[in-house]
Amino acid sequence: MNSRHSLLIAISIFFALVMALMPLPISFEPYRPDWVLMVLMYWSLAVPHRLNIGTAWVVGLLMDLASGSPLGVNSLTYSVCIFITASNFQKIRNFSLWQQSILIALFLTLYHLMQFWLNHFLMGVYFSPHYMWPVLTGMLCWWWIFLILRKYRRHFRIR
């Protein structure tokens, strides 16, 4: 039973990886939400005993390898965000959905600023305001991600 639940969580993370790597038209690319991080945050809030920082680290490494970013950048940023959400899951779960979406926007802002800082340190990338568009789209998508994954979790009785 436990391995079945872990497999179902892994399947949802796999679909988030596919969504993150799926090609989009060039005009929509700056607005792409951070699907993987939001799915990881959902599972760390819903079932924190099943998804931990190590899982976030491994998924971040997969994302680094798949996207061609410097190895460890996504791992570190995912791990920090999941650490914060998992350590405060009892408080965050009690917030309403719109309050959670604002908090998710803050986490996504932290994620993007850490990504920028690491990429600036490693590759000399300069800041551009379009780096923050995924924060807004992620905040708006949080409602859908939360509701879809909650229905998925309840349907398969993932605990």
Rank of each mutant, 00 (worst) to 15 (best):
S3M: 09
R4H: 15
R4D: 08
H5M: 04
H5K: 10
H5T: 04
S6D: 08
S6N: 13
L7A: 15
L8C: 03
L8I: 11
I13N: 05
I13C: 08
F14Y: 09
A16R: 06
L17Q: 07
M19Q: 08
A20P: 03
A20N: 05
P23G: 05
P25N: 09
P25R: 11
Y31S: 03
V36A: 04
V36E: 01
L37S: 07
M38L: 12
Y42K: 05
S44Y: 06
S44H: 11
A46I: 00
A46M: 11
V47K: 11
P48G: 04
P48L: 06
H49W: 08
N52R: 14
N52G: 15
N52S: 08
A56Y: 10
V59L: 01
L62P: 00
M63K: 15
A66R: 05
G68K: 06
L71F: 14
L71G: 05
V73Y: 09
L76C: 11
L76S: 12
Y78F: 15
S87F: 05
S87Q: 13
Q90P: 03
K91V: 03
N94G: 07
S96W: 06
Q100V: 06
I102A: 14
I104P: 02
L108K: 10
F116S: 05
W117G: 04
M123L: 15
M123N: 11
M123G: 03
G124R: 04
V125Y: 09
V125L: 10
S128I: 11
P129I: 08
H130W: 06
Y131F: 14
M132E: 00
W133E: 01
L136I: 14
L136D: 00
T137M: 12
T137A: 12
G138V: 06
M139G: 15
L140F: 15
I145P: 08
I148V: 15
L149W: 12
K151N: 02
R153K: 14
R153H: 14
R154P: 00
R159Y: 06
R159A: 13
R159N: 13
